[in-house]
Amino acid sequence: NGDTSPTVSMAELDHQVQLISKSHLETCQYLREELQQMSWQNFLQDEVESYQSKPREVMWQLCAVKITEAIQYVVEFAKRIDGFMDLCQNDQIVLLKAGSLEVIFVRMCRMFDSQNNTVFFDGKFAGPDVFRALGCDDLISSVFDFAKSMCSLHLSEDELALFSAFVLLSADRSWLQEKLQVEKLQQKTQLALQHVLQKNQREDGLLHKLRCKVSALRSLCSRHTEKLSAFRAVYPDIVGTHFPPLYKELFG
């Protein structure tokens, strides 16, 4: 009937928060404690130089593999979100194709060390210089800036889980067939996010700050697509034969 404003009780919201937090923790690839234990492991200068001296296509392939691994966890997260698997298959694919990399960027703040400006990559914490061989310093720098800015919000795991689900369930993606269903799910998730922010006694403007992150995420993802197109124009065979098939499906 066109009404997308669900009436949800506090108990339902609590339940929703619990479910999404559980799904997030089950699929987040690394637990905070694990990352904490590895936080002292930074790449040594000769290791940094070894990444920098890799051929461009080898470094691109390595990053494509790492992104693809992370995407598989995001797919599992999506599957465990209440209502996601009730959407039509077209819309499940549309949401993941558009949103999986965005969720990876959101999740990245868990693996980011703001003090050292490093991120967990390939077994240790890496600064932006590790990625120099990719030939996309501007994009890498923006990704690090985004992670730093997300970290500064100090989101708890349940807040991060709800925000990730909110991003994934964006109802304004192109090619959705049952937009209304997605809108309902996203609104329910936003209510749960508001609920958890209030419950955790977070500052009033935090939801607004998170909403602003959505446009930053879209910009990062479109710039990733541009960089991939530029790379593929030079190395079409590398992408065709050496990149993970799932990565090509989503970004090709």
């Binding site: 598989q72 797919v75 077209n90 694919i93 090619w175 499906e249 989503l250």
Partner: peptide, 17 residues
């Protein structure tokens, strides 16, 4: 879309472990 995203579709079909 399903035809162009066979791996993603397969991952979605696999039961949650």
């Amino acid at each position: 879309l399903k035809e162009k995203h066979k791996i993603l579709h397969q991952l979605l079909q696999n039961s949650t472990s």
